[in-house]
Design a protein around this nucleic acid. Structure first.
Lengths: 346, 346
DNA sequence: CTGAAAGCGCTTACAG
DNA sequence: CTGAAAGCGCTTACAG
């Protein structure tokens, strides 16, 4: 018998505990789960016995009978090469973990490479019964996940969704910092201010661009050129090489995220333009990279970890049968780097 | 009755399929899982019925009876603030997913903030019966997880472990690229070459430093100064401000990873040193950031995604009762940036 | 408060 | 090849 591995030691079950304590199964279950239905005295005896036997409840057993998985799902859709440099990712997951691990829930993480695959993942998470709820993160305009998840009856909480969605939502409003960033540029004398946007299908791209536009109008300025980027460094670089060759070129550019802003700055440098003497640039996110580069970036510090914590708490409530109110966390606060200066004289 | 949610529609079970097809439960199970024990004709009839009824097997039911979870676990231990800028993370997870999602396995991801918590996580993953196997990633010297996991009887595969560990292992040898990087510097006339290491407790810190040392000796050179870093940007910056104030200061520095190398370069710039005219710098990892900075970094391109794919395949084999051989993937290849130049004349 | 029983949805010997 | 039955480890009415 070469195999004396762990398989041999049979698991201690709740039945063993019940027998050892000399009480019924139901009493044992109630005692161990802090449910009413047992006297304090018996409860204590049962709990002691359980500890003595080294009983630890089987998730599989609980799952089947309680029809819960004690897991929640997060599906992240990314182009492969982008994932690596994505700051949102790690922070967001950390925030989720901070909440759910204390509730004995676990995170099932899936990576998807296309919208079709993403929908397939949600569908399968549901049909397998693998999770009790999911996040609706990085929503697109008319995101197909919303209808799917509703149809599947899968509990969900949305992150920064439009209010129209029928899911509990947590948001950190980007329009305030984008207004502030735009006004900062205006206050420095800039009048021709461009925008490097994210992909048009994303809700958050839209919100950010809209805030920039509104602020320009508010101050009686015509909106500058817009480049439709993709949230990547390379996209930012391309934006610079396109936008900054126009005449007249903008003297300042509001970028939809930090990574593009950093790429934009490099693109400007490659064209021989100085930051901020020739061009002022702002970002959004507050990633570490924005403090590594020179000049350091003017941006707004978002808080994905906080956002995730709120979202996870809401999802835990839903899973427990609750109906949480929508939540809002404070808007990202402006971080003053050195990438913004006074508008150059004409 | 206000609630007409998804709860109302009862799940289609294998019993329903068996009844509808007019056969026994066992035949149905065999047919649906492509196990022998049913005639081809009945199998087809059963499969057709299952599809007709929209049957999709319940993971919970399967789990309980098969004593499998169809999940594997990855525990990542990080200081909170480091996680965000960690490139390893996203790539590694992507690699895992590429393998397991096709096998109907899912990844349970946990974030831990201390070694104590990490051990607790492994312990709980095992006692809950939440996963069928785990990764032993980012191993420390005498890593306590190894003994724990063995004791728990938890199937595991190790990433870049020392050979002495009794787990199937996949590695990408770092000593080759570190020798090459060191020799590149030597070939440029450098003789006083320093090293910025990772935390001493990590196996991979040790391997990298050792390769640098060996190469120096091989070429009859005395090893230069060593700074014990922490793999962060700030750590690299501190290394520069400490090491580059010494007299004589090294003319080249081999950093244990890219993030520290990037910080080191910034630290040098802050001291008024030019890269590579005054100091040459190398990294390791090949993160995107290394191409964003100027000068671009000389480094080695690792492949965490590939590493993860191999590891995940091995874990899948173990879970299926196999005993995979150790694997090796090709070493990271040198990426020539502009951070290395000829040694300055004395 | 306590106990015996059914059930969650599968898999797997075992007998025919 | 096919079928009836037990079992995985829990929870949850239900009756006492």
């Amino acid at each position: 018998m070469p195999d004396k591995s762990a398989d041999s030691k049979r698991r201690v079950t709740i039945v063993d505990v019940a027998k050892a304590a000399g009480v019924a199964l139901s009493s044992t279950s109630a005692a161990l789960n802090n449910r009413p239905g047992v006297s304090d005295k018996t409860r204590r005896r049962i709990v002691a016995k359980a500890e003595e036997l080294g009983y630890t409840p089987s998730l599989r057993g609980r799952s089947l009978s309680s029809k819960r998985t004690f897991s929640i799902g997060l599906v992240i859709q990314r182009d492969i090469d982008v994932l690596e440099s994505d700051p949102f990712f790690g922070s967001f997951i950390t925030g989720i973990e901070e909440v759910i691990s204390h509730k004995d829930y676990a995170l099932v993480l899936q990576i998807s490479k296309s919208e079709r695959e993403t929908l397939e993942r949600y569908r399968k998470l549901s049909s397998d019964g693998r999770v009790d709820g999911v996040f609706l993160n990085e929503l697109k305009i008319n995101d197909a996940r919303a209808e799917l998840v509703r149809e599947l009856g899968l509990p969900a909480v949305a992150i920064n969704s439009a209010n129209s969605l029928q899911f509990p939502n947590v948001r950190q409003d980007a329009s305030i910092p984008f207004r502030q960033l735009t006004e900062l540029l205006i206050s420095q004398g800039h009048t021709n201010i461009g925008h490097v946007s994210g992909p048009q299908e994303f809700l958050h791209s839209y919100v950010r661009q809209h805030a920039w536009e509104q602020t320009m109008h508010l101050h009686g300025l015509r909106i500058g050129p817009v480049f439709h980027g993709d949230f990547t460094y390379e996209g930012g670089k391309r934006a610079a090489s396109t936008m900054m060759r126009q005449t007249p070129r903008p003297t300042a550019v509001v970028c939809s995220n930090d990574l593009m802003a950093v790429g934009f700055i490099q693109g400007c440098k490659d064209l021989g333009l100085r930051i901020p003497q020739d061009v002022s640039v702002t970002g959004y996110d507050g990633i570490a990279l924005s403090t590594y580069i020179r000049p350091t970036l003017v941006t707004a510090q978002t808080n994905p970890r906080h956002l995730a914590r709120e979202a996870a708490e809401m999802l835990m409530q839903i899973v427990d049968g609750g109906h949480p109110e929508n939540r809002t966390i404070p808007p990202a606060s402006i971080v003053l780097g050195n990438s913004v200066g006074r508008a150059p004289h004409k």
